[in-house]
Every structure is written in structure tokens, then in C-alpha cells.
Nucleic acid binder design. Structure first.
Lengths: 147, 147
DNA sequence: GCTTCATGTAACTTCATATGTTACGATTCG
DNA sequence: CGAATCGTAACATATGAAGTTACATGAAGC
């Protein structure tokens, strides 16, 4: 199954932007992500609607984070992307007449509902600042390993 | 994203088989599920490999459960289907050189890993017998509502 | 103003994959 | 032998993320 990697993408982009002074163009971000600038604009546009970033046109234009790193959570980003489905496994029919299928759906909803609640809770706790801190740690470690 | 509904399908099929004396044909199961008999054979074939069901050809042939209902767990069925991915959200790149992407992957792996562990634990606890019991309860309730 | 650099966005293509369908061979029962 | 049934390959369809092309819009600098 093809997985939605937009959350991964925007996190990657936002952290690069956080490490970078001034604006970054769609082209530069696309290079960081190994993708196409139009894809960047499309995806970042969703974050702009939530006021997390802004963009400017023309020379010296590009993208910039407008929110506090320690205020932006994975949950918010997931919402900004339109709350894509977490799970790749689902029902065959949403509102079945058949009682057998109802029992099956109930059992699956139970398990997946619990897992989703856990994910949402975790997502609400993790901020961009947390990721930036982890990145900085990895950066120090790599540097130390070189010396 | 298109979700894999095979787990839902096999549960539905197995419960119908459990309620039914003797073998059920792929055609009959396909009608229960609202799908095609070839899809049924394809999917049930995976369960046969694990010894959960068997099939006979010719007239009076069809499918039959060979395992104990209270021994078969959702976990086993998920395994029999080849352990399809639980999540529809993933990394953009599996083993990135970029430290930013490594930090992103680590954070996502953390959250999704925990959710997956929870799901596997739940799946290991739920048996076909549990579902059959829940179905019977729904059946009684519908009957009571009619009277 | 003109040129250049950048975003905004529509339209289209590509790719992956679950699901559905057709076709036909193999096996079993009566 | 003939009908019923599974086994399986090959092909078709559908969906949605991701990538691409094309062009319009707007801003900065000369």
C-alpha cells in the first residue's frame, strides 16, 4: 500500500527552515526533500492556511515559519494536512446490515480506536522544538564521532 | 488511500462458516461478503496455508474451519494474511543520510511503534470465539427488539 | 516599465496496490 | 461422462499519493 508521507515531508521541511536564516524557496526545499517544488508549494500551502508558515513571491521570496517551534505539535500538522487516515487496514463496509459484519466492525473499531487515541495523544505532545533538539543532539554526536 | 479490508473479510467469512453446518462454497461466501468467488479463494487460500481452514473440490466441496474458534486470534489471521502494514502514514525515505530526516523518522517511529505494539497486543487477545459470542448477543437483541 | 525570480494553481501523467473479472485447468461426486 | 467446485494465471479497474508541465500573478531591482 502506498503510504502518505506528507507529515514526514513537512516535518523535514520545517526543521530545515528552522535551521536556516531567512526564507527558503520551494526549489531549495524540494532539493532537501528530493522532490518537486510544486509538491512543496502544494503541501506547504496547507500549513499556510493554518497560519504556521507564510510565503512571499518575487526575488528574496520563499517560505518562513511564523509559529513558535515549541507551540507546533505533530497533531497540529496532521490536522493541517487534512487529518489523513492513520490506518491502512479497514472495514469492508461501513454500515452493514449483516450482524456478523457489525460484530466484526465493532471488534476492529475497538482495537483501532484505542490505537488512534494513543497516536493522537502522542502527537499532541511532540513539538517541532523537540525534534529540533533531537536533531541538534544527532548533529553534536556526528561531529564528536569525526574528531 | 485505499485500505486493506482482507482482515475484515476473513473474519466475516469465518463467522459465517462457524454459524453454518458443513462446508460453504466460495460462491456462497462471496455472496455474504458482496464480492467475487475468486477473491474469496485467493484470500482463504492464505488461511489454508496456516491450517486454519481446509477446502474440498467437486460437488459437496467448499470451505470449512479446522481450528478451534477460541484458539484463533486476530493476530494469527493478520499473520496469515502476510502481516499487511497497519499504517497509512509513513516515512518519505527509510534510511536517510540527512540528520534532519533521521530525527523526523525517529519521532514518527516512536509514536507508530507504540501504537503498533498496542494493536498487536489487542489482536493477540481477541479470538473468533469472542466475535461469535458478540454476534450471538446482537442476534438475541435484534430478536428481542422484534417481539 | 522591463526583466527576473518566486509563488499559485490547474491539468495532466505516473506509479503502486487492493480489488474485481475472465478464463481455463484440475479434481471430485454421482 | 457431466456437473460442481476449487486453483491459479492473466488481465482490468479504481483509488489516491506523488510528480510534472504550463502558465498566470506578483514583487524586487535596475
Amino acid at each position: 500500500m502506498k503510504r502518505d508521507s506528507r507529515l514526514s515531508s513537512v516535518l523535514h521541511a520545517l526543521l530545515h527552515m528552522a535551521e536556516h536564516d531567512g526564507r527558503m524557496t520551494s526549489d531549495a526545499l524540494a532539493q532537501c526533500l528530493g522532490t518537486n517544488p510544486v509538491v512543496v508549494r502544494r503541501t506547504m500551502g496547507l500549513l499556510r492556511k493554518q497560519g504556521l508558515v507564510d510565503s512571499d513571491r518575487g526575488p528574496s521570496g520563499g517560505w518562513r515559519i511564523t509559529a513558535d517551534l515549541d507551540k507546533v505539535t505533530l497533531r497540529q500538522l496532521h490536522e493541517a494536512l487534512g487529518e489523513p487516515a492513520f490506518f491502512a487496514i479497514g472495514h469492508r463496509q461501513e454500515t452493514p446490515e449483516c450482524l456478523v459484519e457489525q460484530a466484526v466492525n465493532a471488534a476492529l473499531d475497538d482495537a483501532f480506536g484505542e490505537a488512534e487515541a494513543l497516536l493522537l495523544k502522542r502527537f499532541a505532545h511532540v513539538t517541532l522544538a523537540d525534534l529540533a533538539k533531537d536533531f541538534a543532539r544527532r548533529h553534536r554526536e556526528r561531529k564528536a564521532a569525526k574528531d
